[in-house]
Design a protein around this nucleic acid. Structure first.
Lengths: 125, 125
DNA sequence: AATTTTAATGCAACTAAGTTGCAAATATAT
DNA sequence: ATATATTTGCAACTTAGTTGCATTAAAATT
């Protein structure tokens, strides 16, 4: 349903995403904010921010959910699709500002694709 | 550690993978075999078959784990890497016999990549 | 073939990530 | 200032997967 009210919790969450340019996993966010926000609240605000096109979500290693800021998305059009990179050493996750072309598939229609590249980040090389 | 003994459970599991050419989710396998095998056993045999290069695993929609037969992999070299396709309507998952090239990433080393394409399969079009 | 050894299995209990229902608190509208 | 509606916290739940341990079943040894 998206964000309707400017609450304290919302401010806290947005501040957290403004702090760093990396993606943040839901779990980590819950841990970081555990003294301020309930985990249910965190999940719910993440949902709404995604609905509103301010965040996008994707699955990292082991199927856990990550969130990062969107670039140029709106409530109606999530156009900011890109691969994500996760460092196998430090676990850090980033959006990659590149496009991976998906070829035409015979007998199938591709609607979306998710690409996770794992490897070593600059710090861990 | 891989498969060491030829057990009844192993035979049951292999039979299940021979039945269909599609990928099978761990959960579905557990459900299908619930009258014959315990879920712990299913998970353990899947692990071993993956170690041995007979199956490969990957994450589908919602981060749940899928398994499919490998083509030309061995205990030491898992060379059969490819994208997977999941139908958004029927949920069916298949390996795609194509290669998605991953470009060089500045300041990073890519070690592996996983690509999940979602869309409509032939049946559901 | 009987016995010993070692691996595989089933079970119950657990973990981790995420979800749901509901009462209480907090924004916003009146 | 009050009423209305959304948000929050809490506890309890769900789902996928894991762990420890006693029992069972392969395979090796005699």
């Amino acid at each position: 349903m998206g964000i309707l009210r400017k609450t304290q919790s919302l401010a806290v969450m947005l501040a957290e995403f403004d702090k760093s340019s990396h993606a943040i996993s839901a779990i980590d966010l819950i841990r970081r904010l555990s003294n301020k926000l309930n985990k249910t609240t965190v999940y719910r605000i993440l949902d709404k921010l995604e609905d509103d096109g301010l965040l996008h979500s994707f699955l990292g290693k082991n199927g856990i959910k990550w969130y990062a800021k969107c670039n140029g998305c709106s409530k109606t059009a999530h156009t900011d699709v890109h691969p994500h990179f996760q460092c196998v050493d430090c676990g850090q996750v980033d959006c990659l500002a590149i496009q991976i072309p998906i070829p035409e598939l015979p007998n199938r229609t591709a609607l979306m694709s998710s690409v996770l590249i794992q490897g070593k980040c600059q710090n861990c090389l």
